[in-house]
């Protein structure tokens, strides 16, 4: 089971534009033994320092493109954009001021559909250092 590893400590940092922080990101790995199409993500719920992140401010970066998180949950989202097994999916939270540099407690609940059993739920909480 990869539950302990779905939240990586790699690449957690603020996102900047024109010298200002406009958000922050974390990288996730899949909770399954193969890659799945992004549309098989049932939920990504983030909590940072005890506060739930508004899903409407979340974006997913995949293969050089960025999708609003809520869009990948919508019916008819393409079935051939694969979150590759072992590879990171970058989740960006748009927020003025980004995140204060240093350590933050991050919790992620990741739910994915794999068809032959009920939806898989993985939960992981870690203290990450944001750059």
């Amino acid at each position: 089971m990869y539950d302990k590893h779905i939240l990586t400590d790699e690449g957690a940092r603020s996102i900047w534009e024109d010298g200002k922080k406009v958000g922050y990101c974390v990288n996730l790995k899949i909770n399954y033994y193969r890659g799945l199409p992004l549309c098989c993500v049932d939920e990504i719920a983030l909590t940072v320092d005890g506060e739930e992140v508004d899903p409407a401010t979340m974006y997913v970066q995949h293969n050089g493109r960025e999708y609003p998180y809520l869009e990948i949950l919508s019916d008819d989202f393409p079935t051939d954009f694969y979150w590759l097994f072992g590879e990171k999916l970058r989740v960006v939270v748009k927020k003025d001021g980004g995140i204060e540099q240093g350590r933050h407690k991050v919790k992620v609940v990741l739910k994915t559909r794999r068809s032959y059993t009920p939806t898989m739920v993985a939960e992981c909480e870690k203290e990450l250092t944001f750059a």
Binding site: P37, C39, C40, D75, T79, R113, R114, S115, Y116
Partner: peptide, 13 residues
């Protein structure tokens, strides 16, 4: 082969 019928939340293949 896998049978990923449940592609979307409210819709299946």
């Amino acid at each position: 082969h896998f049978s990923d019928r449940g592609m979307w939340k409210n819709k299946q293949l």
